[in-house]
Each structure stands twice: as structure tokens, then as C-alpha cells.
Simulated assay, not measured.
Amino acid sequence: MGKKGKKEKKVKGAEKTAAKMEKKVSKRSKREEEDLEALIAEFQNLDAKKTQVVETTCPPPSPRLSASLSAHPEKDELILFGGEFFNGKKTYLYNDLYFYNIKKNCWVKSEIPNPPPPRCSHQAVVVPQGGGQLWVFGGEFASPNGEQFYHYKDLWVLHLATHTWENIKAPGGPSGRSGHRMVLSKKQLLVFGGFHESTRDFIYYNDVYSFSLDTFSWSRLAPSGTAPSPRSACQMTPTPDGTGVIIYGGYSKVRVKKDVDKGTIHSDMFLLKREGKDGQEKWSWSRVSPSGSKPPPRSGFSLAVGPAGRAVLFGGVCDEEEEESLEGDFYNDLYLYDTVKNRWFPGLLRVSKAEPASDLTLPKSHCSKHGINDFQLHKNKYWQMY
């Protein structure tokens, strides 16, 4: 009984500390965000002058990072939205929209009136209902000098059948953030984690919110069990049976002394499981301990759900941080996680009989710190360069 009481006090204490830190960050960043709101409004005024949908066949999009790339729910197309680029002097934020036709190997830029304002590090999820929809939540906007940040808490939907953007104004959603994760689970969008940063302060989150695609309403979940520590840049994937989601890895930092922060790369894995029926759902956290050949610790990697309940992990970076320096090991390796067997194993590339081994090309080492616009598809068990 005593141990349980101490544990509960510890959890409540952590929640109070997080709430105080969020209030502190919010207060200090308010002025920064007010400055950037005027700049964002200018972009929106320019977009408001567009009244027609214009589609243009184009070269590949310009180099960028922290954009979203989603698979169309009904067509052999990929949808690219937003992102940022730093040329060494100035930071550029985008809200442009591209469609990549896989069969035709071509890009189309789609200019649709009243889009979300420019952003990066947001999350996008496609759903099949209504002829196909692309849902976008959160993200950040940065000043041209890259020293001030605005964190969005808005929710948008792109109706793919009619090519129209819609801003969904529903109360009770997550606070402004970037680096979070969002997935579709049954008829809900689940949002986990992320961070909010100002010039002097930052806070990382481990809260979970659900947006109902039936009622268009937000709710904050209160799962039982021990949650993952606060983090951003993790990956989240639905379980094959649709009863929950798996969260792996991520990054966070803490202030060890004035003006000195220490980063942590997480390599743990958790299951957020749903029990009960709609309207009376209960959620619980549990830690997952997979077997097999686990990927080395990293952040900034990508993760996609493949066939037979397997998730495919690619790339990332492992940073070595000192007080005044930052070095990183970049990866272009491939790992698969079997969600049914709870096991990791390395993805070994097989050469097609029609293609000599010497012609097999791996993608470059990628992570979220470089704006790269090369494009490759992993299909037929070997990499293809387009």
C-alpha cells in the first residue's frame, strides 16, 4: 500500500512539474508567436487571393525536410505537403501540395485555394471516407532567421475527391506542438507526444488525444499503466488487429544546467491498447520487449506498415552531443518489425534476376536534418531509383 501511494505521488508530481513547465514555456513564447502571427497572416492573405484549383505537371519538389508524404487511399499516388529548407542564411517554410503518380513516374503540383499556412514537422494521415481525405494537424513555423518559432494546434482536412481544404475548428484538442505523431485507428485519429520550443525554453509531451471522425470532436485519453516518457520524433504504427498502436523510439532533451541541454535518444517500445466498445473504451499502456536483431538507437527515422503485419524502418541519425558540438552517425539501413511475433530482423535486399547486383542502388543516408529531393521506391524486394 505504501509503495503504491509513493508511486501515485511520484506520477502526480511529474504531472504538476510538466504543467508548470508548459505554463512557463507558453508565457515566454507568447510574444515570439505574436510576432510570427503577422508573418503567417501575410502568407494567408496571399493564398486567399487564389480562387481556382490549378494543377501543373512539374519537376520533383525542391529539397526540403520535415514534410509529410502520404499514400493516397484509392489511387497509386503519394501526397507531399509542406516542409522547410535552410540554405545556410535563410529558413523557408512551405505549404505547397504535390501528387506523385507511381505508375507514370511524374509529379503534379496542385494549388488549392485556402490551404493551411506554411509549416513543417506536422503530421498527416489519409482516410478512405468521403472519396479520400488527408488530415493535417499541428507543426511549426519559423522566422526567416530560424530563431523564433510558432507552434500550430490547428486541424485541417483536404478532401481529395473535390480538391478542397477545410479548417476543422473543434475545441479540446492538443496544445500547439511539432514532432508529434498521428495515426488512424479505427475511426479515430490518435495524436501522441511532440514538443513546444521557444528561444529559451522547451517542453516535451507524452499525452494522447483522440479525434473522432464520426463526431468531429477531440478527447484527451487517460490510459492506465506506465506511459512512455515525454518525447518527439518517435514512430507510431497501428497494430494489425486494429486494437491499438505501437510506439517506438524518439528523442527528448532536458536542461542539465543554465543554457546547457542534454539530448536522449529513446529505443524503448510501448503498446497503447484499446479495450471495450465505442463510447465505453478504456485504454492502457504496456511496455513491449521485442526479440531479434534490434536497430541501433536513432532518431529521425521513417517507419511504414508493410504486408503481413510487418513494419519497415529505414534510416535515421544517432547524435553525439557535447556542450558546444554536435556530431551524428547517419543510417541508410533497413529493419523490419513483425508485430505478430514481436520480433525485429534486418531487411536484407534481394537482387532481381533481371538486374545485376552491381546496379543495385541504396538510398543515401537520410535524416530529418537535410533537405533532400531524391526519390526512391522500395518494391519487388529491391530498391528502385526514380
Rank of each mutant, 00 (worst) to 15 (best):
P363R: 06
Y335I: 03
R287T: 14
Y335V: 04
K169C: 15
K381T: 10
H370K: 12
Y335K: 05
Y92Q: 14
L65D: 15
C106P: 00
K27E: 15
N332D: 13
E74R: 09
N167F: 04
R310Q: 14
K10Q: 15
V191K: 01
L65T: 12
L326C: 11
A311L: 05
G132W: 02
D259Q: 09
K103W: 01
I168N: 09
D96M: 14
W344A: 11
F137R: 09
T239H: 00
S210P: 02
L158I: 02
F330Y: 07
D329C: 15
V11A: 04
P346H: 09
C367K: 01
L69H: 03
E324C: 10
K364F: 04
G300M: 02
V305Y: 02
L69R: 07
V126F: 10
I168Y: 05
K9V: 02
V183S: 06
N373M: 07
K104M: 09
R200C: 11
L158F: 06
Y331S: 15
Q384W: 00
S267T: 04
E140S: 15
L184D: 04
P115H: 02
A304V: 11
I40G: 05
L158G: 02
P356K: 09
I40P: 02
I372Q: 08
K273Y: 00
A38P: 00
D201G: 12
S219Y: 01
V208D: 08
F137Q: 13
L80R: 00
P128I: 00
G249K: 06
P118I: 13
H180C: 12
G347W: 00
S62D: 11
R181F: 03
S121T: 01
G225D: 12
D201F: 04
S110L: 11
P113N: 11
N206C: 07
W283A: 02
S325E: 14
L69T: 06
T226R: 07
Y152L: 10
H366R: 10
I265L: 10
P144Q: 15
Q133D: 08
H180M: 13
Q44D: 14
L360K: 07
P290T: 06
E33Y: 00
E320A: 14
K169D: 15
K262V: 10
H159Y: 06
V125N: 06
C58K: 08
K109P: 06
A67T: 01
L184R: 05
N380T: 05
E355P: 00
S352Q: 07
Y94C: 11
E321P: 00
A227S: 12
L349C: 12
